[in-house]
Simulated scan of single mutants.
Amino acid sequence: MLHKVDLQENADIAIVNMIPVSILTAAVLPQMVKRNAGIIVNISSGAAYVKCPQVATYGASKAYVNHFSSILRLEYENSGITIQTLCPGYVSTNMSKVKVSLMALSAKAYAQSAIRTIGIIPETTGCIQHQLQSLAFALPESLMVYFAKLELEKTKLAINEREKAAKQQ
């Protein structure tokens, strides 16, 4: 719940997920417009589509990335600039602490898949595994929230167990 989240942590999530994408995009656009060519790939998250309790700021900040990118696609549609948004599910990274699995690719595997989608689809999960998972976004909202809560708890438990194991070593 938001009132239980540390204010600095909440601010950090918003700042990290929204400010750089806005500033860096604005910084590279002038040279791309001048050349009539360029590619911008903004990283969002599948969390942008799900109202997931306990991670409100994260999901909302990722929805910002989607909305921001979709507006830029309209503004620059005849400029020769490709603006794509990647909305992955779980990717195994040091930050996510999610283990590699069939549905949670390594960062390298995800990047290799996602890069093949540039110029083909403006907003995508970036890989077939996450695209299949995104079919769940068509479920009624109450079911999506229920499953999001379950997944969040499962992920928290797995992270806690790995952290305990690491401390014991």
Results as ranks from 00 to 15, higher is better:
19 I>M: 09
106 S>G: 11
119 G>R: 08
30 P>Q: 04
125 T>D: 12
107 A>T: 09
39 I>V: 15
39 I>R: 13
128 I>Q: 06
95 M>C: 07
13 I>K: 11
112 Q>A: 13
135 L>P: 08
12 D>H: 15
62 K>I: 12
91 V>G: 03
17 N>H: 00
81 I>Y: 06
89 G>Q: 09
46 G>L: 03
29 L>K: 00
45 S>H: 01
64 Y>I: 02
63 A>M: 00
39 I>W: 09
101 S>P: 13
38 G>C: 07
108 K>A: 04
69 S>T: 07
10 N>L: 15
136 A>Y: 09
133 Q>P: 03
27 A>R: 11
113 S>C: 04
114 A>S: 07
102 L>Q: 06
127 C>S: 12
100 V>Q: 05
135 L>R: 10
30 P>F: 08
47 A>E: 04
128 I>V: 06
72 L>G: 03
124 T>P: 11
80 G>C: 03
70 S>C: 03
112 Q>N: 15
38 G>I: 10
92 S>W: 10
50 V>S: 00
24 L>Y: 05
76 Y>G: 13
59 G>M: 06
110 Y>M: 05
14 A>N: 01
49 Y>H: 08
83 I>R: 04
93 T>W: 06
52 C>S: 13
10 N>M: 15
77 E>Q: 12
57 T>E: 00
36 N>C: 14
115 I>E: 05
41 V>I: 14
31 Q>N: 11
130 H>R: 08
90 Y>E: 15
26 A>M: 00
36 N>D: 14
80 G>K: 06
106 S>E: 05
120 I>Y: 12
65 V>S: 10
113 S>R: 03
30 P>C: 07
86 L>Q: 10
28 V>W: 11
34 K>T: 07
50 V>P: 00
93 T>N: 06
14 A>P: 01
93 T>A: 03
119 G>E: 02
20 P>S: 02
18 M>C: 11
127 C>Q: 07
60 A>C: 05
68 F>L: 11
104 A>G: 14
23 I>T: 09
109 A>L: 02
27 A>I: 03
63 A>G: 00
42 N>S: 05
133 Q>T: 08
16 V>Y: 02
